[in-house]
Design a binder for these strands. Structure first.
Lengths: 104, 104
DNA sequence: TTGACATGCAACCAAATGGTTGCATATTAG
DNA sequence: CTAATATGCAACCATTTGGTTGCATGTCAA
């Protein structure tokens, strides 16, 4: 879970996920295009994303395809966002009431 | 948006949000209890959370109460998780098909 | 009013992070 | 076979991050 949050914290990695979301199964070289950094830097990001189980790879000859794995993001939605969502209205009203209490 | 992801990336900060979720409006000293770090370290985390708009504070005399703001988390759920969620089943089936293609 | 308490601010430090360069290895095309 | 291509691995570097200590400031209680 912590690895997922850390992986999602970097804009470059979110961009990589976005690009895989747009077209799944891209190779490393594909993903390097339009990235303003070296191939090795992209590789490091992909390694982190894979460690967080946000993507899986399939080696095919000298190429390596990358596939998005939406499960961890779903887990965050379920276990974390949902929890906070349920208390949303209540927390908002509490906040409002407490703020108003300060300004007579 | 990036500030929110970065803020959520640290386990200490998620713990702080959890504790505010359990009991809203706690003071800095409250939040420092059971934290294995100095008050100043906790302060730094709270500053980041506030910069990400994940909590708001109300100063009352010499105390400062902290209130959870669930809006940014909701925005992540809406704009990011939702997008990936919608493609979940499709992506999973694609992944499965591509994996099977590799193992005859 | 004075001492205790709650918080703020700044300098400093070690470790993690995000990037680079250079080279090695494996596969495919000609 | 050989050259080009796709990727892997490791050392190195600057900046950010997460923490510390020390001290300053403001507020409440006795």
């Amino acid at each position: 879970m912590d690895l997922v949050f850390k992986a999602l914290a970097d804009p470059t990695r979110r961009q990589l996920l976005d690009r895989l979301h747009a077209r799944n199964g891209q190779t490393l070289n594909d993903l390097c295009e339009q990235m303003e950094m070296t191939r090795q830097a992209v590789t490091k990001h992909l390694v982190l994303l894979e460690a967080a189980n946000l993507l899986s790879t399939v080696k095919n000859g000298r190429e390596k395809a990358h596939f998005l794995n939406p499960v961890p993001i779903n887990e965050i939605a379920e276990r974390w966002i949902g929890k906070y969502e349920r208390g949303r209205l209540k927390a908002l009203s509490n906040l409002k009431r407490n703020l108003e209490r300060q300004e007579p």
